[in-house]
Design a protein around this nucleic acid. Structure first.
Length: 578
RNA sequence: CGGGGCGUAGCUCAGCUUGGUAGAGCGCCUGGUUUGGGACCAGGAGGUCGUAGGUUCAAAUCCUGUCGCCCCGACCA
């Protein structure tokens, strides 16, 4: 590529709406431009990076025995209705009605369609196992796109779906993908950790998440120092709080006037209490029935744990009308008494609440709270609709199997799921086994966010001057910077350029008629791993300079040796990522 | 969806409080000097001040609606 002909609009200044480093650098380096909120156009250099990543993904998927397909992005609503995910996905699902009045879904993922396709053609155990994947645009109507490409509405995802005859075979398919993912992230040059994850509304029995640890990540990873446990926050189990044996006497319950104090913060301020002395009573709705959750005031409900506890069913916060109907009070004053307990389909009580001796909770009467509430005495801990479980987010200070839990942020770049028969049974993806008995296929699904790999690589690899790409996903491996308009410089540069192309090296030659300083800045910003600088002084001695983007020193080599030297360097940089 | 902030030249922003001929830096074009880390001089192009309405002799500036963008939250019990 000739830089003079390339469309790489770099920027000196930081666009005001870019907050995190990957977003800023991807814009500044001319890799992409924003078209609308959460919607980006990838420019030539950015597209080259995406193609490098998809190339690696494709190779490793194929090597793992998966076969590439291409499914429609606009999918019939009927398929989504059959699995119920038109509802489960909620408003994140992008939909439209076409001129014939048919409902359409802008695919956010493709379990339905792939199961429909696979199921239609798979009839016998002899055809199994099979693994089909695609690399395509996905659309999610995010409630709030943010962090540039990390949470965008449209993005590129590799999604694979495996079909197996039995659990043992599914385990193998799952493992093959798990291993392929490790190779993919290794080759892309991004550091990653693997954590146990929840399956959420995807359904299924097991899942691992591949996460790039970094400050700007949206996910929280929870782990023990010795590495014996790592999970994401949605999944992370915590040891139940110890129930104190020596429990001081608690006085009678007492109702106190707490005008307008409906939030934990307000109640604490009003009663001069600490949040961990409060018991919050959350009211949710699942299948039109109320579900009540009791938590300690300083804890947060873990929606994933709640979803799991309800068997994967969609659950959401109750509206005001239901809260009022159940608690007989305004929102903010519910307590675990009367109809709130009696009419709930299920009451989930977190372990930490059970361990409380004396708490403060809503009085089921507007503007009143009750103090001296003793779990078990003042509200039941047992009953047909009462369950004591772990249903909150882990917090600093919690332990798992006796070991303290640590927290760090990360970007989710991939996740693998064992789906089981959730989709195959609903969409009729069945096969006959050797005995002639019909079974739904056991499925797995495996996703990788292509743009997220790109952004997380930038988050991990940059310095004050710009991006520092791992060579495997750099838009070009080598840049030749012609520092000067001298004839000897041009001649040597063109010669090396031609030789490198001949050797199959991805090279861009900066032949623009501008000052050297600008070329150096652009090369650094763009993050090309290897730079050859040809300047007046060195060329007079018959030499050129070679510099790695990640290092500050350069070395001089004879013009005649340059090409071979570069080939060696590129090879060794590539080998680092194997 | 709730809260906060911002929309003025391609980019970053000033001007708005106190209404009176639209500004700077960077970028872009022309000429010259420069030429190894985002050069300098001279000249130039480029803006219905997001949009619609209102107040006023007069609106980028004040008021109202609306659209877009960014941030925080959506765990309120």
């Amino acid at each position: 590529m000739r830089y003079s002909k390339a469309f790489i609009p770099t920027m000196k200044e930081v666009p005001s709406d870019a907050e995190i480093i990957s977003h800023q650098l991807m814009l500044r380096a001319g890799l992409m431009r924003k078209v609308a909120s959460g919607t980006y156009a990838y420019l030539p250099a950015g597209q080259r990076v995406l193609l490098k990543i998809t190339g690696i993904v494709r190779q490793e998927m194929d090597k793992a025995g998966a076969q590439e397909t291409l499914l429609p992005s606009v999918q019939p609503m009927e398929l989504w209705q059959q699995t119920g995910r038109d509802v489960d996905y909620g408003e994140t699902l992008g939909t439209f009605v076409d001129r014939h009045g048919r409902g359409n879904v802008l695919s956010p993922t493709a379990e339905e369609v792939m199961t429909f396709i696979g199921g239609g053609e798979i009839n016998s155990y002899k055809q199994l196992p099979i693994n089909l994947y695609q690399i395509s645009f996905k659309y999610r109507d995010e409630f709030r796109p943010r962090y540039g490409v990390l949470r965008s509405r449209e993005f590129t995802m590799k999604d694979a779906y495996s079909f197996d005859a039995d659990a043992e075979s599914l385990e193998k398919s799952y493992r093959a993908m798990y291993d392929a993912y490790c190779r993919i992230f290794q080759r892309c040059g991004v550091e990653y950790v693997i954590v146990e994850a929840e399956t959420g509304e995807m359904g299924g029995s097991g899942s691992h998440q591949f996460t790039v640890p970094c400050e700007n990540g949206e996910d929280v990873i929870v782990y023990t120092e010795d590495g014996s446990y790592a999970g994401n926050l949605e999944k992370a189990d915590v040891d139940p709080a110890a129930i104190p044996t020596d429990q001081p006497d608690v006085g009678e319950m007492k109702e106190l006037h707490t005008p307008n104090a409906g939030t934990i913060e307000e109640v604490c301020k009003f009663l001069k209490a600490k949040p961990h002395k409060l018991i919050k009573t959350l009211i949710y709705v699942c299948e039109d029935k109320p579900v009540v959750i009791l938590l300690r005031g300083d804890h947060e409900l873990n929606q994933e744990k709640l979803t799991q506890a309800l068997g994967g069913k969609h659950v959401e916060l109750a509206d005001e009308a239901m809260v009022v109907e159940l608690s007989n009070a305004a929102v903010g004053f519910a307590g675990p008494f009367g109809d709130v307990i009696a009419k709930a389909a299920t009451v989930f009580i977190d372990h930490s609440v059970v361990a409380m001796n004396k708490g403060i909770c809503g009085a089921n009467r507007s503007n009143y709270h009750i103090v001296n509430v003793k779990p078990g005495r003042d509200f039941p801990l047992e009953g047909d609709n009462i369950k004591i479980i772990d249903i909150r987010n882990a917090v600093q200070g919690d332990t798992y199997q006796g070991k303290p839990l640590l927290f760090k942020r990360g970007i989710e770049v991939g996740q693998v799921f064992k789906l089981g028969t959730k989709y195959s049974s609903k969409l009729g993806a069945k096969f006959l086994d050797a005995d002639g008995t019909e079974h739904p296929c056991l499925m797995g699904c495996y996703g990788i966010g292509i743009n997220r790999i790109m952004a997380s690589a930038v988050e991990l690899c940059y310095d004050d001057n710009g991006i520092v790409w791992p060579i495997s996903i750099a838009p070009w491996q080598v840049i030749i910077t012609l520092a000067g308009a001298d004839e000897n410089i041009t001649e040597a540069g063109e010669k090396i350029y031609a030789q490198l192309l001949e050797k199959g090296i991805e090279v861009i030659i900066d032949d623009r008629d501008i000052r050297g300083g600008v070329k150096f800045k652009d090369a650094d910003l763009l993050g090309i791993p290897v730079r050859i600088t040809i300047g007046k002084k060195s060329i007079a001695e018959g030499k050129v300079e070679i510099k790695l983007r990640r290092e500050s020193d350069n070395k001089k080599v004879d013009v005649a040796d340059c090409t071979n030297e570069i080939v060696t360097i590129v090879e060794s940089l590539k080998n680092e990522l194997k």
